[in-house]
């Protein structure tokens, strides 16, 4: 699989997180894509918007839910050299949150700037 990969190409990848962390499996399985992408030495970006901003909210406790709490993985992304995390300002505000409520270092940008950033990407994967 990885053997036939052409190591020369570096593309701008963006993983767009739009859904709450629990309730559906999308957030968890996007994270699995992100971790694999790190092995390919690509220019990886993560975007959090809509309910997706809740994925990186501090203090998640899933005990009563019976789900694995996978939120510590976001803090581990730095170790995979995935450090370009963008959060949409309006999505935070709509949910009464600020950057101080988030568990990782992010760049908070406006909806308009998020759209601009997306326009610069080669590959966008959303869920």
């Amino acid at each position: 699989m990885e053997d036939d990969f052409d190591g020369g190409t570096v593309k701008k990848f963006m993983f767009v997180n739009r859904k709450a962390p629990y309730g559906t499996i999308y957030a968890l399985e996007v994270l699995e894509m992100v971790l694999i992408s790190a092995a390919f030495d690509q220019d990886v970006h993560l975007a959090f918007l809509d309910d997706g901003v809740l994925q990186i909210k501090k203090g998640q406790d899933t005990k009563d839910l019976g789900h694995k709490n996978f939120s510590p993985t976001y803090r581990a992304l730095e170790g995979y050299d995935i450090e370009k995390l963008f959060v949409e300002q309006e999505s935070l505000e709509e949910r009464g949150l600020t950057a101080a409520d988030l568990m990782v270092d992010v760049e908070v940008i406006s909806r308009a700037d998020m759209a601009k950033l997306m326009g610069e990407m080669d590959v966008i994967l959303t869920a």
């Binding site: 699989m1 036939d4 990969f5 593309k11 699995e32 894509m33 694999i36 390919f40 080669d122 590959v123």
Partner: peptide, 21 residues
Amino acid sequence: SGLGQLIEAGIQADRLIAFGD
């Protein structure tokens, strides 16, 4: 196969098109 096949498709293809919500 593994998720690497998806990332590789993103690198090799001119366009990667996703179908879903």
